[in-house]
Each structure stands twice: as structure tokens, then as C-alpha cells.
């Protein structure tokens, strides 16, 4: 096991170093969430006045949702990095070393997590400073949002890598990711209080991992008195999902081995 951890750390170093050499890239990935938070948030500001909407300020309501949604969107692309390594032969080089397969996934996912931390802090900061949100959950609330975002991002990132290993075509990964991420967002309470949504959407959302992360983050960050049972169950579900997705991804290596 220590071998797996050590290998994962070495692989993570490679990706973190690449990221730190191009920090501007983080800013690029922030363009979309900032649009959602500042423009979409402003446009629908009055939505909280709907009778039954469970928040007083749309900025408070929206910010944790945008944080986890951003993690979902960028994690969807994780497989593209693996495809680049595959195209260059780097993946095969790693696969012929004694390094554990898990560590090959862990590298890009560690990078992903660092990106998520930086993005989340910036989005929360913008929510506070520009959109005038207030977060009673404080620092602990922010930490929970970030943990939820990292868990979701890691699970989705592992799946994206598995998909990339199996299809080995950038077009297929792009098509799958773009056709899944936005619907997942609309089938959750990211933008809208689900009490006011159609029943079927509320039902579907219960099985949507994005919704788990939104609920945990929003509860911890914006509730006046946090119901930790709500937060804990959602984080637990997300952690279980991470494990399941890693199992799928390591299986995908076997499928890769059969097909090359």
C-alpha cells in the first residue's frame, strides 16, 4: 500500500508541477463559473421572492452550487489529459513500470483537486465581495464545500479517465462530457430550490451526485444552524462513489490491456 501512495505522490508531483508552470490556466477555467455566478446570479436575483423559496439571497443560494458544478465540469475533462499521455506513448511507458495503476489515475486527479481548491476559494471570494453573499457557515462551511467539490471531482475524474481508456478518442470523451454535465446541473438544486421544481426533477436529483455535493455544501455554508447529519450523509455518499469510480477505472486498465 505504501508503494501505491508513494507512486501516486510522484505522479501527482508531475501534474502539479505542470500546473504551477502555467498558473494562468486556472484563471481560464474560471471564466465560466464567474459568468454563472455574476451574470446568471444577477439575472435571476428576484427568484428568491418566489413563495416557498428556501433562501433570502440568491447569491448565498447559488455560490456553493457553482463551486461544486465547476468541479464537476473540469473533472469531466480529466480523461483528455490521459488521452494526451496515451497519444504520446507516455501512458504505455508508465504501464510497463512497476508503478501501480491507481497511481496513474492519482496524478491527474491530485492536480484536479488543487485546481478545485483554488477555483473554489476564488468563487466563494467573488460571491462574498462582488455578489454580496453572506455565509454563516464561515471557514468550516467553506472547507465542507471544497471537500464536497473535491470528492465529486475525483469521482467524475476517475470515470472520465475510465472512459478515455476504453474509447481512446477525444471526440467521444468531449461528446459524452458535454452531453452529461449540463443536464446533471439542471437535474439538481444548483440553480433552483427543488421544493419549487417539478416532482420528477426532485426525485431524479436524489440520485444525482452533483446534488449530494450541492446539498452538503449549501447546508454547511449557508444554514444558520447546520444539520450535520445532512452534510455527513451526502459526503459519505460521495466518498462511496469515489471508491466505486476508482474500481471502474482500474477495471478499465484491464480492458485497455486486452485491446492493445
Amino acid at each position: 500500500m505504501s508503494g501505491v501512495l508513494a507512486d501516486s505522490w510522484f505522479m501527482a508531483q508531475r501534474h502539479l508541477r505542470a500546473l504551477l508552470r502555467q498558473p494562468a490556466w486556472i484563471v481560464v477555467t474560471l471564466v465560466q463559473p464567474v459568468m454563472w455566478l455574476l451574470l446568471f446570479g444577477a439575472l435571476f436575483k428576484a427568484i428568491v421572492e418566489l413563495p416557498g423559496f428556501g433562501a433570502d439571497s440568491y447569491a448565498d443560494f447559488l455560490t456553493p452550487g457553482i463551486v461544486v458544478m465547476t468541479a464537476l465540469f473540469s473533472a469531466g475533462w480529466a480523461g483528455m489529459g490521459l488521452l494526451q499521455d496515451y497519444d504520446r506513448g507516455i501512458l504505455d511507458r508508465f504501464l510497463t513500470t512497476p508503478a501501480s495503476r491507481v497511481s496513474i489515475l492519482a496524478g491527474p486527479l491530485a492536480q484536479q483537486s488543487l485546481v478545485t481548491i483554488v477555483q473554489s476559494l476564488i468563487i466563494v471570494g467573488l460571491g462574498l465581495l462582488v455578489a454580496d453573499a453572506s455565509f454563516p457557515g464561515g471557514v468550516l462551511g467553506v472547507i465542507v464545500v471544497i471537500v464536497a467539490a473535491i470528492l465529486l471531482g475525483t469521482a467524475v475524474g476517475a470515470l472520465s479517465n475510465a472512459l478515455a481508456l476504453i474509447v481512446r478518442k477525444e471526440e467521444t470523451v468531449i461528446a459524452t462530457v458535454t452531453s452529461l454535465t449540463l443536464p446533471l446541473s439542471f437535474l439538481s438544486g444548483t440553480f433552483m430550490d427543488l421544493n419549487l421544481a417539478p416532482d420528477w426533477i426532485a426525485t431524479v436529483a436524489k440520485f444525482n451526485p452533483l446534488e449530494w455535493a450541492v446539498v452538503a455544501g449549501r447546508e454547511a455554508l449557508t444554514a444558520e444552524s447546520v444539520d450535520w447529519a445532512v452534510v455527513g450523509t451526502r459526503l459519505g455518499l460521495l466518498a462511496a462513489l469515489v471508491v466505486a469510480c476508482f474500481v471502474v477505472a482500474t477495471r478499465a486498465f484491464r480492458s485497455y490491456q486486452r485491446s492493445v
Binding site: 508531475r14 508552470r21 504520446r88 506513448g89 507516455i90 504505455d92 511507458r93
Partner: peptide, 14 residues
């Protein structure tokens, strides 16, 4: 074993 594949499997960003 050591393996040198057909393509230059070098990480250009490092």
C-alpha cells in the same frame, strides 16, 4: 525490464 516504445514517450512539459 526496460521498455523503449516506438514513439518518443517523453513528457515535454518536464
Amino acid at each position: 525490464v526496460g521498455v523503449v516504445g516506438q514513439r518518443n514517450a517523453v513528457d515535454g512539459e518536464a
